[in-house]
């Protein structure tokens, strides 16, 4: 595979073809915040926190680094007033759901996000999809999935599968940026309703 040279925050970075900008940055020790990214999983691009600006021969735009493929002579900026403004708002929007999540609090400090900007609707889940994707892609069990759409989107366990698979696994719990609260809660509830039946 051919080597690609690009510039991230003014630094020359070497990468391989097929890599994403995020991977290239991480290898070069440049940190970009992420929430829904996980190296074992297919890129997902849902939290949009890893947003960066690219400049391809004068043509500028915002892209998410966890998905955008590296290219020769690409110029990447990972921090700017606009990028930080977007990240701050994303964190604020998520804090409305999970105000006590440590990951979010750290991000809030970094970007000056106001924990109380939006009215609280604590549902804990921030829909990063890590549990759903880990269960499907790594464990291939499909015990937990998404239901509904739009503002009503939720995660939901399939009781029949969960009662067989989950107690011995629980590998998704530590992945949850909101301390597994929701995953644990939904799981127990699903199991209970299943035993009741």
């Amino acid at each position: 595979m051919s080597e690609i040279l690009l510039k991230i925050d003014g630094k020359e970075v070497k990468a391989r073809e097929g890599m994403t900008v995020l991977e290239a940055a991480q290898r070069a020790g440049i940190s970009i915040p992420t929430l829904c990214h996980h190296e074992k999983l297919e890129p997902y691009g849902a939290c949009r926190l890893c947003i960066v600006e690219i400049d391809m021969r004068g043509w500028k735009k915002l892209v998410v680094s966890c998905l955008y493929p590296v290219a020769q002579d690409l110029v990447v900026t990972t921090k700017s007033e606009k990028i930080n403004r977007i990240r701050k708002m994303i964190v604020e929007l998520l804090l409305a759901h999970a105000p006590d999540a440590f990951d979010l609090q750290d991000l809030a400090r970094e970007y000056g996000a106001d924990r109380d900007r939006f009215e609280k609707e604590s549902s804990f889940c921030i829909h990063c999809g890590l549990c759903v994707r880990y269960c499907a892609e790594v464990k291939k069990k499909h015990a937990v999935g998404f239901v509904n759409r739009g503002a009503n989107r939720e995660i939901s366990f399939i009781p029949e599968v969960a009662s067989k698979e989950c107690w011995n696994c629980k590998e998704c719990f530590p992945l949850c940026p909101t301390e597994a609260l929701q995953a644990a809660y939904v799981l127990t509830e699903a199991l209970m309703s299943h035993t009741r039946q």
Partner: peptide, 8 residues
């Protein structure tokens, strides 16, 4: 097809 997908 996994039940998660049918349900979604």
């Amino acid at each position: 097809v996994p039940m998660t997908r049918v349900q979604h």
